[in-house]
Simulated scan of single mutants.
Amino acid sequence: MKKILIFSDEYLGKGGGAGVVADQLFNDFKRQGDECYLLTYKSIPSWVPSFFWIIYYPVLLVIQYFRTRYDLIVCNDPKAIYTLGLLNRLGFKFNYKCIMHGSEYRIFSECISFVNRIVLFKYFFQISINKAMEVIFVSKCVKKQSQNSFDITNKNLKVVYAGVELAIFTPPEKINTPESKNKIILTVARVIKGKGHFEFLEEFKKVLSNDSSFRWHVVGDGMDLDLLKSAVQTAGLEEFVIFHGKVNRVDIIKLYRNSYVFVLLTKLKEAFGLVFIEANSQGCAVIGPNKHGVKEAIENGVNGYLVDNLNCVSGLILDKSKISSITPEACIKHSQKFCSSKFALEVKEL
């Protein structure tokens, strides 16, 4: 049994994929018999100004470490990685690993803030990743991006795919074939322009012009949700597009199981495509763009389709032979390659 601290400012209720992975690691470590602890944004009292994390996290980590003597600290997001670099420079030595999720390079290449410059974020961040026991990348895409963005001298680098929690995303007892399902097209993502909702709306119009029995279910909220609803209303498609907002995991699983196909035409530089794997885990075929980390989540013609041209998506959906050739059994089998418990074992391996 190991004493493991998961250090991640991002956690459920704040941030994106890194927060989900932190929760998965916590649950899987506990299932595997380890003594697991958390240090997240929830560890900082609400009355503390947000920018004080740069003082609060190092102090809190040192206090907790000398109380508990962790065997391993898992740094799961940029603030955690930075904090270990700062403490390392101050002479503190810890056994820690860094997980890179893909958003790190943007901090330094796309939005170098004044605060980040003042606190020498990139300097201490790079110290941290180069002093870590190991740096873990959640995809080959993330590893390549990181090596292009940072001066990484650490030789202990590896790619380990994050996965779904099989304890939650258990395969359905009864597997429905695409032919037996309702004609539901499902999208699960934050509703922002970069996620491709507006592009798919144009493709969905083409689908309806050929088969009006289809319905598009949109799960998630975001800054452009009202804009998307307005676009749907302007197109006169209110009865064909169902907005669910944020839903719990139980309801998401039901939607995955009942959907004809899952579609997400993201234009962002996705680190991976965990949402595609979630859909696969419930026997649902997927369609996504042939670029960045999504390419590593979809095996073309096996668990779904990768598209180079978004204009061909409507044709794929309408081609029954194409969708039917992606069997639910193949989707489930593919998803089981990406299991969160396997990820946890790789992370804590010393």
Rank of each mutant, 00 (worst) to 15 (best):
M1V: 12
I4C: 03
K14F: 15
G15S: 08
A18F: 04
G19Y: 10
L39V: 06
L39Y: 09
T40D: 05
S43N: 15
R67N: 12
R67P: 02
R69L: 14
I73P: 01
V74N: 08
C75F: 09
C75H: 03
D77C: 15
T83W: 04
L84T: 13
L87N: 04
N95M: 08
N95C: 11
I99W: 06
S103V: 15
R106I: 14
E110Q: 15
Y123E: 11
S128F: 14
K131E: 15
A132V: 13
V135D: 00
F137P: 00
V138C: 03
V142L: 07
D151Q: 08
V160D: 09
I168C: 02
F169H: 11
K183Y: 06
R190F: 05
H197R: 03
L201R: 02
F204I: 02
F204W: 03
K206I: 12
V207Y: 02
V219I: 14
D224N: 13
L225W: 03
A231V: 10
E239V: 10
H244D: 10
D251P: 04
I253M: 12
R257V: 09
F262Y: 15
F262K: 01
G273W: 04
L274T: 06
G283D: 06
I287S: 01
D319E: 04
I323H: 01
E329L: 11
Q336M: 14
S341E: 12
K342H: 08
A344R: 07
E349Y: 05
